[in-house]
Amino acid sequence: MNKEELKVRLEALLLPPTFEEGAEWTTAVVDPAGWEGFARHLRSDAGLEFDFLFCVTAVDWRTHFTMVYHLTSTLHRHTMVVKVKLDHDHPSLPTVSDIWRTAEFHEREAFDLFGVVFTGHPDLRRLFMTDEWNGWPLRKDYEDPVNMIKL
């Protein structure tokens, strides 16, 4: 499916997402509440079958967070991006690690570096930092006078 066809197909879903224009791939924006159901549709609906989650990341926009999921289908070879907008003070999102197993590690990474809490995650702990680390290093307001070297 090409970009436009995919968009039409996604709009036919029960809770259609909004779309962002101008990107390389179809970019859908969904609410945190609708994300889990949307993800299940993406994974299992005939014609979509996005089974390969190849990139998960969070972006700190200072006012809010966005979780960005890059998905592709090994069956149909189409790619799409899903963005979920999160609250800046209490970023929280249901996990998709039971749909795509790779999300388990990637969500832990996002939790570790951004402090995004994934509800229902089987093992949500720090991944890179030590357990007693304070703060979320990849946030824009993170300051660490000891370990960060200003050039």
Binding site: F54, C55, T57, V68, H70, R101, T102, E104, F105, H106, E109
Partner: peptide, 12 residues
């Protein structure tokens, strides 16, 4: 963001 292959491979 760098999507590194080793990270996902390790998770398996």
């Amino acid at each position: 963001k760098f999507r590194s292959p080793g990270f996902s491979n390790l998770s398996a």
